[in-house]
Each structure stands twice: as C-alpha cells, then as structure tokens.
Design a binder for these strands. Structure first.
Lengths: 341, 341
DNA sequence: TTGTACGCGTTATCAT
DNA sequence: ATGATAACGCGTACAA
C-alpha cells in the first residue's frame, strides 16, 4: 500500500502543498472554492495526514494526556469520563496513555510530552515514590491525582483524599462496633503508596482504641495477582481462615478486595455480617450494588476529577492555584458490618 | 525548558549525530568505549529522543496496537493483560488506544497506523457496522475481537463467540426452568452489534419454546447512561417494575446489567431467585463473586485473547490462518436462577 | 490568495 | 568505527 502524502494531494489538485495544508487546518487565507476542491480530493483518496510529522513540526498542540497506571481499575472509569468531557468542552484534545505495571510512569510522561508536544499531564494512580527529582524533567503542568504529594512546587499540583486519616476513620468505626480482632487485607509489603497509608490508618485506629497490632491478622498481597481485584481478596481471606486466626471483622484496602473476601466467607459457610463483618475502601459502585452492600470509604471521584482538570487548566493559564487539594471522603455504612453483640 | 536534541548531545560528546544514534539504538558498528561515553552524557543530561521524529523516519516499528471502545469495560481487562504479556514475549511493543464513544474506530486506526508505523491492529469492542469498505484503508493485519464478522478476506480475521446462539442457549435454559415471562434488559435500540445478536437469540429461544415475544417485557437502554453498567441495570429494572408487567425472570445482556437488576429487586423487597430469577451474559468475575452468583454465559476471554494475538502474529508473518475463529462459550448456572415451582 | 523552500529531530546511506 | 547529509511528511515564513 502506497503511503499517500500531502505532496501527492497537492499534485492531484494542481496546487501547492501549503494550500492543501491550509485547507486541512482551516486557515483563513484560502479561497473557499479551492478549499472545497482540495477537501474533496482528500476525501476521495482517503488521505490522512501523518501525525508524527505534524507533531514534529508543531510547537504547541492543545493536548493534555492522562497517564493511568492500572487502566483496568474501575475506580478510574468515572474520572476518565469527566476528563474527556471537560477537555472537549475546552476544545482540548485528550489522550489516555496506559502505563504498564513495570513501567516508570514519569519516564513515559517525559517521552510522551516530547512526542506529542503536550500542554499538560494528569497522573492517575501509581507515582508511589522517587518523585520530586525526576518530576522536574517534565516541563509542562502536572496534576497528580489520587495520591497526596506534599511540598509540590512550580507547575505541579495534586488532588487526593487523606488516605491515612480516612482509613483511620473507618477502622475507628469498626472498633466502635465492638470489633477487637480486625483482620487487614493489605496491599503488597513493598507498596509505598496508598496501600501503606491505609495500613498506617489501620494501625493508628487500633492504637487509639487500645487494641494491639497483630501481624497475624494482616494478609499481604502477593505480586503475581493484581492487588485490587476480587480474586486477590478471595485468596487472602482463604489464607487467613486457614491460618486459624480468630477475627470478627475484615478490613480490605479496597472494595474489590472486600467483595472477594465476602465470597470466600460465603464459600466457607459463613454469613456476612452475622459471622464476620467486612469493610472496604474507595466507594466503588460495586460496594453499593453488592449484596450485602459493603461498608466503605467513599471517595468523591467525580469531584476529584473535576478539580484535577480545573487545576490543569489553571496551571496552563498560569493562574494561581491551591496546589494540594485534599478532599473529604465519606464513611458509607453498608449492611456488611454490624455491631458485635 | 530547552528541548535538548540529538545534535546537542553529539556536540557535548564531540562526536557526530550518527554516532549518538548508533549508541542509543544498539547498533553493532560502534566502538564500545565511545558508546559508553555517549550513553553517559545522555543520562547525565536526561536526554530523551523525540518519538515523533523517530516514527517519521522509521519505516517499520514492531508495534502492534489495540483499539478499545469502552476501555472501562471489565470484560476487556483480562484480555489486555494477555496481549501485553504475549506481545512482550515476542519482543513487540504494544500500545493501547482508547476510542471514545462517538469516535469512528476505523478512522482512529488509520491515523494511528500512519503515525506509529504499526505492524498490526487489534480491535476490542465496537466495530458494529459500516466495516468492509472502510476497513480496506488499513494496510496492516487486523484482528477483530469480540465481534463476529463473516466473509473476512485478506489480512483480516476475527475472534468471537456466537452471540446469538449462546444467547439462545441461555434463554432456552431459562425456559427449561419453567419461565414463560422472561424480561429482557437490552442494549439500546440502535445497537447493531452484539446487543442485537443477543436480542435475536432471546427471540429465537422464545419461539422455540412456543412463547410469544412481548415488547412490553423488553427494556431498552438509553444512550445517556453507559449500557453495560450496573447503574443501567438498576434503572431499567425499576422501569420494568413500575410498568406493572409481570415476569418471573430477568435476562440482562451483560453481567453488570444483571447485578444492577438484582439490586433493584432487593431494594423493592424481592428475593433472587425466589421471587425473580436473574441471568446475565459474559461470565465476568463479578458474576461468580456476586451474591447470589449470577447464571451467565461465560466467554473464554483469555483463550480468545490468546487466539487473537496468535492470529495477529500469524497474519504478520503471512502464515495461512483460519480467519474466523468462533469460540464455544459455557453456560454457567449460578444461584440467581431457579426452577419455577 | 498562492507556491517555494526551509526546518522540525531522527535514522540510514554513503563516504571516509 | 565515524561523520556528513539526505530523507521522513508536514507546517509556515516569505516571496510572488
């Protein structure tokens, strides 16, 4: 298949390449007639301009990118929709870039920025550590979403909830129901991001309630299974039950994990919450739709997404902004937890 | 921020640009010493080559792309993972391209092919109609996944289940349980793709069982809500109940919708399956994890993904292939359906 | 209003 | 082994 280029279109139209270019890009200085003729030929020959060449030549681009670590995470679904809608509203084009588990999201960002002449970058998920230093290699505005990064300077900002505090709030609630042996389905031991913060909140709540922290009640995720999956919750809960530990409540660091936990309990002939309470985190739709509905911390994802994109536009326009927006999450009490008799 | 280019790196190293290029791309004709020196400087100055320029110059690229319509659909999650793994195994690089609801996936494909010098394209979802003619504008191998397209020629192939037949199988099973008034939660009326096929299967099964098709039992999805969502299932079921129609069973064209239906039933004080049976389609993890587990048609997504990527590589190598691979799906009976007394 | 020619940052070809 | 230099396909001054 021959690659048809702008030159050949020009030749076919009997005009210069610049005229073709003008026709495509809605430039003002062009005769309406010739424009129509050119567009006709373009359509007829199914000519599509090469984006790489465009990106190379252009210096700006009105494109913002969202880099997502864990694109399969339903938590991000709503947020993506908000980004798409708002970007379109502002006539920005919008690209989603999936970052694989093993990839360094900042490297990907740096590369993409050059490739597409981005106007800004939004991170969704990931960004566990190693930030600061490397982030500076990005020269466009950056909004980090879902993870709280203190001391951001310059054209960086973040939108998040206080994972540790919200986690503490939830576990505190569980304690208030009389639970003393609360198992934790944690992220992997290496996790230095939100998984760890939620763990910290768990420990603080226990401490405040005079309950000793018991390693035996913590089930750590393995790396071979996606952490935030129902499957993982199922496996961890099974392990926990087989370990012979006694517990009256399970707190999973995400709703998907919590659902897996419920299933494992059901399969073992237990009832939720009569035999064991279960709580999650995130406030996915799933938590509300599950039977029984899952007690969880609901993050205001749509609002957070709206804030993130607004922050992005403000940073682009160099307006002054609040660089660290921490949202209040909401404790949603479902039917999966109950007061200990 | 100054854009640092290969020229400046060359200058800094005291060598020519071609030497820098050779160092980066692991070319054989280069002195190991100079190579190391160049790489050092590159690292020191955080130089990252511009991908657009690369793509522009390169003629091939060993990249395959997956175009996904509905990236938030959990059905695709597993499949994506398979693609990533297999592509890496074969030393191919792999890009995921999200296609927005209103976008024409073929247009996106054509553009991306030129931009990235793709070796092949896999479609996931979408591709409802208008194919054939336009598809020909793509000049690399194409594998269409999840939707059955007959009469594919040349470098095109597809992997799918027989949606109509599987749907018929499921509804037939529901009939065998004694259900005569089976409500259908359908895709939108305009849907010409799998939604319609599943509808057809529903109608055929009814016919075979001597049950008249009743428009009143069909709830059509509206376009303002994502069709394959729990929220949609909830809304449709509520409508259905409010319409005063009698039914003993609900068949949703996807598991997410089915879960939403269950929730609506629960909220109305009904039990599943005692007061109403519920069945879905797809065989998502969710169906197995839900309480009660959802009776569904399980599509072998991993196998389908493996077949798709294998097909892709074979097409690239111009090996002869079976261009239309229809997989057998499995009726999984859950606890959400029961025999009518 | 239109066409010519240059440059965007790379890679690859060809001398050296 | 290395360095000029010509493409790659497009946008855009600048000249006409």
């Amino acid at each position: 298949m021959e690659q048809i280029t702008i030159k050949e279109i020009a030749k076919l139209c009997g005009v210069g390449v610049s005229t073709v270019s003008r026709a495509m890009n809605n430039h003002p200085d062009i005769n309406e007639e010739t424009k129509q003729k050119v567009l006709e030929i373009i359509k007829k020959y199914n000519y599509v301009p090469n984006n790489s060449a465009r990106n190379l030549k252009r210096s700006d681009s009105n494109t913002i990118a969202v880099l997502i670590k864990g694109i399969t995470n339903p938590f991000f679904s709503d947020m993506i929709q908000v980004f798409e809608r708002e970007a379109k509203k502002k006539k920005y084009s919008f690209v989603i870039q999936h970052v694989e588990e093993f990839e360094d999201e900042i490297d990907v960002a740096i590369q993409l920025e050059k490739e597409k002449r981005l106007k800004g970058i939004i991170f969704l998920g990931g960004l566990s550590s190693h930030t600061e230093e490397k982030l500076k290699q990005i020269s466009v505005p950056v909004v980090i979403s879902t993870v709280d990064v203190p001391n951001l300077k310059g054209k960086f900002a973040c939108v998040a909830v206080d994972d540790e505090e919200e986690s503490r709030k939830l576990v505190n609630y569980l304690c208030s129901l009389g639970h003393k042996r609360i198992a934790l389905l944690a992220a992997s031991k290496e996790d230095a991001s939100i998984g760890m913060k939620r763990l910290k909140g768990y420990r603080r709540a226990l401490e405040e309630n005079g309950i000793p922290y018991d390693e035996g009640l913590v089930a750590w995720s393995q790396d071979r299974i996606p952490t935030y999956s129902m499957e993982n919750g199922y496996g961890l809960t099974k392990e926990l039950m087989e370990s012979g530990q006694e517990f009256t409540c399970i707190y999973a660091v995400s709703d998907s994990i919590a659902v897996g936990a419920c299933k494992a309990l059901f399969d073992a002939g237990k009832r939720v919450p009569e035999d064991c309470s279960v709580a999650g985190f995130d406030g996915l739709d799933l938590a509300a739709y599950y039977q029984p509905s899952i007690t969880t911390i609901h993050q205001p994802r749509r609002e957070m997404a709206e804030a993130a994109i607004r922050l992005m536009f403000d940073l682009i326009k160099e307006k002054p902004v609040e660089k660290r927006q921490i949202f209040q999450a909401e404790l949603v009490v479902g039917r999966s937890t109950r007061r200990l008799p």
